[in-house]
């Protein structure tokens, strides 16, 4: 699957942009947090698209945000 790019996103309406990012984000999170993948993905989709694109390419930053989301979820 080719990487999601800014120009690919720009061609879609805003709600579709989040959908496109979510479809990429969900499997990555599902690998680690099967039960909570839907909720974690939903939380992370509130982040700016530019940062989400970066996270898709950066496992370290994605893991950090997932850890933050889990902390909030369990609070």
């Amino acid at each position: 699957q080719e990487p999601l790019t800014v120009s690919m996103l720009a061609a879609a309406p805003p709600h579709k942009q989040k959908q496109m990012i979510g479809e990429r984000l969900y499997p990555l999170i599902y690998n680690v947090h099967t039960q909570l993948a839907g909720k974690i993905t939903g939380m992370l989709l509130e982040i700016d698209n530019s940062e989400l694109l970066f996270m898709l390419e950066s496992p370290e930053s994605l893991n950090a945000k997932v850890a933050e989301a889990l902390a909030v979820l369990h609070a």
Partner: peptide, 22 residues
Amino acid sequence: GSGINWPPEFHPGVPWKGLQNI
């Protein structure tokens, strides 16, 4: 949104509505 339904769950293949319905 009051936070009761937060966070919204993402499901692959299902159109994402985000916080619009809360």
